[in-house]
Simulated assay, not measured.
Amino acid sequence: MDVALYEPDIPQNTAAILRTARCFHAAVHIVGPASFDLSDRAVRRAGLDYAASATLVRHLNWTSFAEAMAGRRIVLFTTRADTPLHDFAFHGDDVLLFGRESAGVPDAVHEASTARVRIPLAADARSLNLAVSVGIGLYEGLRASGTIATKGLA
């Protein structure tokens, strides 16, 4: 199971997501362009000791990402989804896609995703921080698909 970030806005969130994904043996795909420096040097600096061992894959744009993910399900996390996270049947090779902190994903990306899920929130809550959402989504996806055991997580 991998994580994909669509045109991320906030480098600190991306660094936290990189660390979280590394802890669960998941790759992070950045669907560009990001609104901050994604050079190897900048990633190492932001990711601290996890950057060297994390798997970060950069994609120029949505088209190149979609082509690279051919044959895999792209599961979009969005507040516009009808299916709550706990009712979705995850597969171990799913790619969990998260939108920009400021704007989510455009309608074309929303429609191109294989499935859409939402993290249930209190009725008066608007949204969660992106890094928190990724942590919740990745863990639940791994747990629900039975992938935790096969990844050797203790």
Score class of each variant (00 low, 15 high):
residue 86 H to T: 03
residue 64 S to E: 13
residue 87 D to P: 02
residue 63 T to N: 12
residue 57 V to N: 13
residue 75 V to Q: 09
residue 91 H to S: 11
residue 63 T to R: 14
residue 64 S to A: 10
residue 77 F to R: 03
residue 99 G to P: 13
residue 75 V to Y: 01
residue 57 V to R: 15
residue 114 T to D: 06
residue 77 F to L: 14
residue 95 V to E: 00
residue 119 I to A: 03
residue 67 E to V: 12
residue 69 M to Y: 02
residue 105 V to E: 04
residue 97 L to R: 11
residue 58 R to T: 13
residue 74 I to P: 00
residue 100 R to Y: 05
residue 110 H to A: 15
residue 113 S to T: 11
residue 128 L to P: 03
residue 57 V to S: 07
residue 124 D to N: 05
residue 116 R to D: 11
residue 83 T to N: 08
residue 59 H to N: 08
residue 117 V to E: 09
residue 126 R to F: 00
residue 110 H to P: 01
residue 66 A to N: 05
residue 58 R to L: 15
residue 84 P to W: 02
residue 83 T to K: 10
residue 101 E to N: 12
residue 69 M to Q: 14
residue 79 T to G: 02
residue 68 A to L: 11
residue 91 H to F: 08
residue 102 S to H: 02
residue 98 F to M: 07
residue 63 T to S: 11
residue 70 A to H: 11
residue 124 D to V: 01
residue 104 G to K: 06
residue 80 R to V: 05
residue 71 G to M: 09
residue 86 H to D: 14
residue 74 I to S: 08
residue 108 A to S: 14
residue 119 I to D: 05
residue 118 R to V: 03
residue 92 G to W: 00
residue 74 I to T: 15
residue 106 P to V: 07
residue 125 A to V: 01
residue 101 E to D: 06
residue 121 L to D: 00
residue 90 F to W: 12
residue 116 R to M: 06
residue 96 L to C: 12
